[in-house]
Design a protein around this nucleic acid. Structure first.
Length: 493
RNA sequence: GGUGCGGUAGCCAAGUGGUAAGGCCGAGGUCUGCAAAACCUCUAUUCGGCGGUUCGAUUCCGCCCCGCACCUCCA
């Protein structure tokens, strides 16, 4: 069953397939601006794109997908941050790039094959701007900046259907000073000492020194790493206009050919029913949520609970729901695990998923993640765990692993692996990192209380044991007993 | 003002011209010193309101009410 995905350009779902003779699917995803930690809204887009990447690999093969995602490390916001902190640009962008990578890893997002930076591709951007100037699509302004001339590209507005909108005119004074038309956008921004600090590069021929505009980086880096024509270009809805519209204009005018065959935009995340903002107090980074005691996997799951093309209302309760759901999914894996002497190798290309097939159907029909989650649970309910043969268990394990772990990117946890060590290998999921709730440091006083309670329990002094349990709870810890051992877990804030 | 999206059980959320997936929560049960976990069962005569089309609409059309987002550098 082919992967079909809504195309923002034609406004209907279309099949995704490689268009180049080498069979490699070329996938460009607009990445973050590294001037601050990414928030969970940003991560919704990256997690959705990660599922998409995984589907493409299952369908075409891991070596037949080339995924490029840029890092915007020079623009108004990054430069603004250097001015605010009085630190070099590279220091700031390195710090937030590292943080972004750590967050992506925690969310189990696959790294793109190429992660180009704007500052690493100044030459490519400059030569593209020169190309546009030579072809008459761009002009030098009085201050030495270079602008793209919208009127020179008849196709402008095709993606965002701009002609059908009546634009609010907000940038009449500040930006219009050097432009021929208010809607022309900057390809190159002339250096301004009072704003830009020491951030500057030699400009295109005939222009001043300065730095690239925002949009040109994606055109230039996409061209360098994926070629003139790509198979899929994605990002958040907010990028549809003007960013992607401008990319099309730049690339198609310079390259003289179709820029992207397919466009996909994921909708925004809302938090508690409204757009996230620091002033509303509903602005979360991944670290904020982890500090509250939620696991990154719960965040990943919660971000996939809504259809990617619909605004998703995210709430802290969603994370509790996600954790409970994840536990149930893990329990299913553990039941299969106990049936298997060794875990089978899981193919990297999609196989027949059996009862899990509806999960694939939901995912490839316009990336319907919530329907796929529903199908996952429905499938699990159909498994007769009590009467499974080893070979049935093996097939189910492969189906579950490909659907849940490989497509959804939610690895199986192996809390039981220690007790079962020696009885099986973990080959099948060795490549899937296990991301569990970060165990907070347990204070010595709490450990001491827990030890006392455990001793009392062993001595069948239940009155004392219960009193100590209450004491622990009051201190914010809950004690989870098993037959032979106990675990301490902080009560969630 | 313009463009677009949405209003489905306590919460989150799919979906279809033929009579409502799934998750969470909750309730009951099994198990268990207690707690937690796990497992089983149950939980929307109804899909914002009013009309219309239809044998039949939550699903199509019209109007209304409410909410949200976007409209030049925000995923």
């Amino acid at each position: 069953m082919p992967i079909r995905l809504f195309d923002s350009l034609t406004r209907e779902p279309r099949e995704l397939k490689p268009s180049h003779p080498d069979g490699v699917f070329r996938f460009y995803n607009c990445g973050p601006t590294v001037y601050a930690p990414a928030h969970i809204g940003n991560f919704r887009t990256f997690v959705v794109n990660d599922v998409l990447r995984r589907l493409l690999e299952l369908e075409f093969g891991a070596d037949k997908v080339k995924h490029v995602r840029n890092l915007t490390d020079v623009d108004d916001r990054t430069i603004g941050q250097t001015q605010k902190e009085k630190r070099p640009l590279a220091e700031i962008t390195k710090k937030w790039t590292d943080k972004f990578h750590a967050d992506c890893d925690a969310l189990n997002c696959l790294r793109p094959h190429v992660e180009p930076t704007a500052t690493g591709h100044i030459r490519e951007q400059v030569s593209m701007i020169e190309c546009l100037m030579e072809k008459g699509n761009a002009y030098r302004a009085a201050d030495g900046s270079v602008y793209f001339k919208i009127n020179s590209f008849p196709g402008y507005g095709g993606l965002s259907r701009i002609k059908e909108r009546e634009l609010k005119v907000t940038n009449t004074v500040a930006d219009a000073d050097h432009k021929d038309s208010v809607s022309d956008f900057a390809l190159w921004k002339a250096y301004k000492p009072e704003e830009d600090g020491d951030v500057k590069w030699p400009g295109p021929r005939g222009a001043s020194e300065g730095r690239p505009g925002w949009h040109i980086e994606c055109s230039a880096m996409s061209k360098k790493h994926l070629g003139d024509t790509i198979d899929l270009h994605t990002g958040g809805v907010d990028l549809l206009f003007p960013h992607h519209e401008n990319e099309i204009a730049q690339s198609e005018c310079c390259n003289g050919t179709t820029f992207a065959h397919h466009w996909y935009h994921s909708e925004h995340l809302l938090v508690e029913g409204t757009t996230m903002s620091k002033s509303k107090g509903n602005y979360y980074t991944l670290s904020d949520l982890v500090e509250k005691g939620y696991s990154p996997m719960a965040v990943r799951y919660a971000l996939l609970m809504g259809h990617p093309r619909k605004q998703l209302n995210f709430m802290l309760d969603s994370l509790r729901a996600a954790e409970s759901a994840l536990r149930k999914l893990n329990a299913c894996f553990e039941q299969l695990y106990t049936k298997l002497k060794t875990l089978p190798e899981v193919p990297t290309r999609k196989v027949h998923w059996g009862v899990f097939e509806p999960v694939w159907v939901a995912l490839v029909e316009d990336l319907n993640t919530p329907a796929a989650i529903g199908a996952l649970f429905t499938a699990i309910d159909q498994i007769p765990f009590a009467s499974l043969s080893e070979s049935e268990s093996k097939d189910l394990y492969i189906g579950l692993t490909q659907s849940k772990a490989m497509a959804f990117g939610i690895p199986h946890t192996l809390e039981m692996s220690a007790s079962l060590s020696g009885s099986g290998t973990l080959k099948g999921s060795a490549n899937l990192s296990i991301v569990e709730r970060k165990n907070s440091e347990v204070p010595a006083a709490i450990t001491a209380l827990a030890e006392k309670r455990w001793a009392a329990k062993q001595a069948k002094d239940f009155a004392t044991a219960d009193a100590l349990r209450k004491e622990l709870a009051a201190a914010g810890w809950s004690m989870l007993d098993s037959k032979t051992d106990y675990k301490l877990e902080p009560v969630k804030k």
